[in-house]
Write a protein that binds this DNA or RNA. Sequence first.
DNA 1: TTTATAATTGGAAACGGTTCCATAATAATT
DNA 2: AATTATTATGGAACCGTTTCCAATTATAAA
Lengths: 338, 338
Amino acid sequence: MATIRDVAKLAGVGIGTVSRVISGKGSVSKKTLDKVSDAMSALKFIPNTSAQSLSSKRYNTIGLWGTKSSGEMSRATLTKIERELQPFGVSLITTDGERNSANHPNASRLSIDNLINKGCDGLIIWGADLPEFDILQLEKEYPNIVLLNNKVDAISDKSFSFDHYQAGYIAGQYLVDSGHREIAYISGWFDTTDANERHNGFLDALKDNNISIHKNLIYRGDYTFKKGFEGANYLFNQEPSFTALFCANDQSAMSAISALSSNGVKIPDEVSVLGYDNMNISSYTNPPLTTIDVPVQKMAISAVRKLINLSYGAALEIDYDFGIKLIERKSVLKLNRD
Amino acid sequence: MATIRDVAKLAGVGIGTVSRVISGKGSVSKKTLDKVSDAMSALKFIPNTSAQSLSSKRYNTIGLWGTKSSGEMSRATLTKIERELQPFGVSLITTDGERNSANHPNASRLSIDNLINKGCDGLIIWGADLPEFDILQLEKEYPNIVLLNNKVDAISDKSFSFDHYQAGYIAGQYLVDSGHREIAYISGWFDTTDANERHNGFLDALKDNNISIHKNLIYRGDYTFKKGFEGANYLFNQEPSFTALFCANDQSAMSAISALSSNGVKIPDEVSVLGYDNMNISSYTNPPLTTIDVPVQKMAISAVRKLINLSYGAALEIDYDFGIKLIERKSVLKLNRD
DNA sequence: TTTATAATTGGAAACGGTTCCATAATAATT
DNA sequence: AATTATTATGGAACCGTTTCCAATTATAAA
C-alpha cells in the first residue's frame, strides 16, 4: 500500500501538498494538482482511513443502535439510510443493542458506548427502548444523536417520530364511524412508549364514543404473525361476537385475516379487520388491508439527514411532519352505508 | 479522553505494559495487572480504535456487500450475523452495493473496494451479482471473503449456497407426484445464477416427466408481491386452465393466493400453489403455504463463521450442508389420493 | 550460592494520515 | 520598482495505539 509519502516523493512535492490534494481543502496550483493526481493513480494510492480518523477525529461512520423490539426495520429502510449517507462518504455500522434488564440495569447504555467507541461521528437511536432519562444523559455527553421512532420533548429537534396516540385514535374513530360497535382487539407488546400511545389512542377514541371493548375480546399479542393467528382463533371462539377487529400491526392483522378466513368468516362482510403500519404486503392480502400508514422510511430518511447536519455541519433540509394517513382498502366494511 | 500514556503514568508502569493489559497478550504479573486495571477504570480509559487499527492493521470490522437484487435479507438475518460477530468484538458494516451496468462496467468492484478501504478484515459477498471472474480476481487480491447465496467452484470452501437447481427440481417433481399435469408458473428475475438454477431445475423436473408448461401459463415476475398478484390475475384469465401454480418465491406465492382467492378460486381445491423460500409468514397464509425451505439464516451464520476463521484465525466449526426441505402445508392438493 | 531459564517490564520506533506554521512564489497595488 | 497581499508549498509535530527488543527481575536447576 502506497502512503502519502510515496506519493509525495513520486510527485516531487511535500506531504502537506498531497494531503491538501486528498482533502480538497487549502490551495494547490493546477500544475501540482496534476502531478499529485498522476502520482496517486500511478501508485493506486488510497488514503488509510484509520490514519485519517486518528489524526482528524472524524470517522466517516455513523452508528445505528436498535434492539429486536425496535420494530420492523426492513432491509429496504436500511438501504434508504445508506443511500443518504453515501454522498458524504459515510458508512453505516449497525448493532443489535441490548435492552436494560434486572440483572443488567444499564446494558443499553453500555452497548451504546461500545458502538460510540467503535468510532462513530453520530448515532441513530432507533426505537423507544431507552428510558428518557438515559437518553437525555447520553445526549448531553454525546450530542450527535437522533431518535428514530421515539420522541423526547426536550430534544424534539432530534426526535423523528410519529404521533401514535393520534393514529390509534384515528383508527378507533374510523371503526366507530364505519358503524362498528362490537369491536375486538389484538394488541401488541406494551414495553415501549409508542405501543402504549397507540393503545391509549385507540381506546380513548372508543371511550369518547361511549364504546368499550368487552374484556373477552381483547387479546394480548406481540406483533408477530403467530400471535395474530392465535389471537384471531381465540377471539373467534369468544362471546360476545364482534363485527370489527383492530390489530396493533399489519403482521398480526394479516395472519388474523387468514385465521378468520379459514374458520369460514367472511372478511369484511362478517368481520372487518383494521391494521396498522401499511407494510408492503398489505395491499396484496385478501381482501386488501385497510390500515394506518406509518411512514418509517420517510422518518428514517429525515433522521439521518438531521444527523448528517449535526455530525458533519451540513445544512440539509429536514422534514419533521409525518402526517397520519388511514389507507382505505377493502378489509373494513361500512355498516352504516345502507 | 485518557490515553494509554495517562494510564501508564497513573499506574506507574510503562506504556508497553498497559498495552499488554489491554490486549491480554504477553505476560503481566498479577500485581501490575491490578494497578493498571485500577488506573484504567479510574480514568475511564477506552482504547482508541483508529490508533489500534493503524498500528495493528486489524480493524475488528467486517463488511457486508450486497445489492437490492441480492434477495431478501431480513433484519433478523442481519441480527444473527451480528450475534456471531459480537463475541469477537467485531462489528458489521453494511453497504448497498452497485451492480455492474453498461455505463459502469465495474461498478461492483469499485463499490467493493470502497468497502474494503473503509477498513474491513473480511467481506461477505452476498448474492450472485458479481461475475465469477471478478470474484476470483477479488479473492486473489483479498482472500478474506466469503460468498453467501452464491457458489464458485474454485472457492467452494468459501461458498455458502443452496442447491437451487435441485430444489427447483424437487418442487417440480412434487407437483407432478401430487398428480398435477396442468401447471402454471410465476417466475422471478433471471439476472442471477441462483434464479436460473431454480428455474432450470423446476423445468427439468417437468421435462423428465414429459410435462411441459403451456407458454400462456408462464408469467415473468420479479419476486415482488405486486408481480405475484398481477401474475396470478393474468394467469387466471388464460387458457388453458391449470391445477397447480409454482411461484419462484413465497412473496409472489402469497399475493398470488390472494389474487386467486379474490377471483373466487378455491385453494388448494381448484388450484394448488407452491412457494419457495419459507418465509416467516408462510405458515400464516390461508391456506398455509406449502413451500421449499431455504435456510438463509443458517447459511448466513455459516458464512460469517467461516469468515471469522479466515480473518481472525479462529477455528469455528462450519456447516456446509444446507439440506433441501419441502415443507408440506395446505396449499397443494394431492390429486392422486383417491 | 551460582548459573541458567523464564517471566516481566519499559519505551523507542512505527503505523499513515492531518494540522499548522514558516517560508517561498506570485499577483496586485502604489 | 518597491511594497504589500495572496496563493502555494514543505515538513515537523502530533494523533494513540502496537510491536519489538533490550534490560530487569523472579524462578528453577545445579
